[in-house]
């Protein structure tokens, strides 16, 4: 059985490679870590991914680091849908320059496709609009077909 590296404060060992500049997305639920990474990988940036890491707050968590760039506004919206409890830190010269809140909007527009295959938005050239109807876990309701889904069940656009 593999052993987790010690993470006690004071003798902290990084579980994921440090980056000199860029964005660190922490406290990602383990189940969606790779989905978040796949979403961010589309940009072509260099990514460092940690999955199933120990977390005192969450038990297990994921971390994704983007080297050399701040997270885009679209990626932040996607993050709010997949991992609304995540935290984002902007890193400059190995230091945390600032922390960004992951803000869950009242409605996600053109962030994810409705999961109902018969929804009109999957057949016409039209915007996807998903209204937030629950926060923990994040649930959204399609403004067109009126079906509800977990945010983590949706395919990003």
């Amino acid at each position: 059985m593999s052993q987790d590296p010690p993470t006690t404060s004071g003798s902290r060992i990084r579980q994921v490679e440090a980056i000199s500049n860029g964005s660190v997305i922490d406290h990602i639920p383990t189940a969606v870590t790779l989905k978040v990474a796949a979403m961010l990988a589309g940009s072509g940036d260099q990514l460092f991914i940690g999955a199933n890491l120990r977390s005192s707050r969450m038990g297990r968590k994921g971390v994704v680091k983007i080297a050399g760039r701040e997270i885009s506004a679209h990626a932040a919206s996607c993050l709010a849908l997949l991992a609304p409890g995540a935290t984002v830190s902007i890193i400059h010269d190995y230091q945390v320059l600032r922390k960004l809140p992951v803000e869950v909007p009242a409605e996600f527009t053109d962030v994810a496709r409705c999961a109902n295959p018969n929804c009109v938005t999957n057949h016409e050239r039209w915007s996807s609009r998903l209204a937030v109807v629950g926060r923990e876990p994040l649930r959204v309701r399609c403004c067109y077909c009126e079906r509800s889904f977990l945010g983590t069940d949706l395919a990003l656009m």
């Binding site: 409705c114 109902n116 018969n118 929804c119 009109v120 938005t121 057949h123 016409e124 039209w126 399609c142 403004c143 067109y144 077909c145 009126e146 079906r147």
Partner: peptide, 9 residues
């Protein structure tokens, strides 16, 4: 319309 949500659109 056969698609869910077509009337809202």
């Amino acid at each position: 319309h056969p698609r869910d949500g077509a009337a809202r659109l």
